[in-house]
Amino acid sequence: MTTTIGRVRPDTQPTARLRTDILGTLASEFVKIRSVRATYWTLIILIVASIGSGATYCAVEAHQWPHLTPQDHANFDPTQASVLGVALLGQFVIAVLGAQTITAEYSTGMMRTSLTVMPRRTVLYGAKAAVLAAVTLIVALSTSFASFVLGQALLAGRHAGATLSQPHVLRSVIVTAGYVAVCGVAAFGLGAILRHTAAAVAAVFVLFELIQRLAEALPHNLYTSMEKWLPGGATVGAITATTPDSQNPQLFSAWGELAVLGAYAVILVVVGAVLFRRRDA
């Protein structure tokens, strides 16, 4: 009986054991994420909604193009038009997947089984976050590129489209995808903290929309100076834009804003990790 169990014997060396644990748990988490329909539904919704909204935006612009002023033509950012939907809609769709990666284990009770077979909690938590980040980044990149290509095709008739070789276009497409993946990871951290899907998704909404909306009520100077540190609002514009947004000089560049949001995600994931290690499962 024993011979059929597996090829790898338990390692006794701590570093070798850690490596064995990490590889095994990554493989396990990949099986988990690919073996439930919820993953596919969420990603299909992400892809369809993102590409659909980008295409709609670009089609409408193409339709109205002759009626717009030269000033409008100059201000139009065809890259942003095609990928804005990826960021705006994708952030909330991916939040559901990110939160569920961990909250579904609590709601079903699966977490107890997972921790029984892999009691090294940091390894389990890290593997979950890593697999989620990898899957969401790959899907988000594909979606972002697809949205870009479709959007530019729709604008090509008006000669209003952009190409990847133009300045900052590639950056915009990649940073948009990165933004979606960062949202997924932030939602995962909130899921670990709150251990409840609906609560975690609501918290993502609060973080990415509500805080910025409330901050708008602050004195104008104060708000302007802190806006670049806030998620939501004009941030999505800065991330998707190919030109430094003339209306939002108070923000960081696209990479800078992505880094700010990444920092939020890291804080949430680390707080989640500390709680994950400390709390009873």
Partner: peptide
Amino acid sequence: LLDARAVHGGRSARNHLLCLARTNHIS
């Protein structure tokens, strides 16, 4: 075996066991 119902219901029996097996390099 603590709670038999504590599994993700959307996963097949084989995939459920496979994701557990993978953590300990079980074939």
